[in-house]
Amino acid sequence: MKKGIIIVIIVVILAVIIGGIVLINSNNSSNNADAMQSETFIFKINGQEVKMGQNLLDLNLPETSNVYEAESCAFDGIEKTYTYDNYDITTCPENGVEKILNVYISHGEESTPEGIRVGDTVEDMKQAYGEDFKTADVSYIYTKGHTTLTFVTNGDVISSIEYSLIAD
C-alpha cells in the first residue's frame, strides 16, 4: 500500500513540474503575441496605414513589376522585396500570409506620416520624433513596440529611412 502511495506521489510531482513548465511556456507565447499587437511605427502609402508585421496582401498597393523573390533559408516559402520608385517593401511568408518585415525609403518624394523625408536635417528629425533614440555610426534609431525607425545620415542630412520589424 505504502509503495503504491510513494509511486503515485512521485509521478504526480513529476507531472506537475512538467505541466507547470509547459503552461509557463504557453503563457509566454501568448504574451509575445499580445506584445506584437502593441503600438508600432506606422508608414502610410496612398493614405493606407502600413504596419510592420501585418499582411501585405491586406493592403491595396500600387502594382510593381520589380519584385525580388528568394527562397527563405529558415521558413517554407518565398521572401519578397517589392521595389517602387521611392521605397522598397520586404516581406516574408508566415502562416500563409506575407508578413511585412521592413519598408526602406530612399527618395525625398516620400515622407513619413510625421513629415520627415530624405533630404531633411537631423534637427528636423529630432523635432518630429524627439530625442529618445539610439545612435549607430551615422544612424539614429527609434524603437516603438516591435518596430524600429532608422534614419541614416550623411553629415547632417537624412539619406535614407527604414521601418523594420524587430526579429522574434
Binding site: 513589376s65 520589380n66 519584385v67 525580388y68 523573390e69 522585396t81 521595389t83 522598397d88 520586404t90 526602406y104 530612399s106 549607430a136 555610426d137 551615422v138 544612424s139 534609431i141 532608422t150 541614416v152 539619406s159 535614407s160 527604414e162
Partner: peptide, 17 residues
C-alpha cells in the same frame, strides 16, 4: 534556375562595423 533580373535597392546601413 531563377536568373538574376531585378535586384532590390542597395540600402544604406546603420552601421557597417
Amino acid at each position: 534556375i531563377r536568373p538574376v533580373e531585378n535586384l532590390p535597392t542597395k540600402r544604406e546601413l546603420s552601421n557597417y562595423q
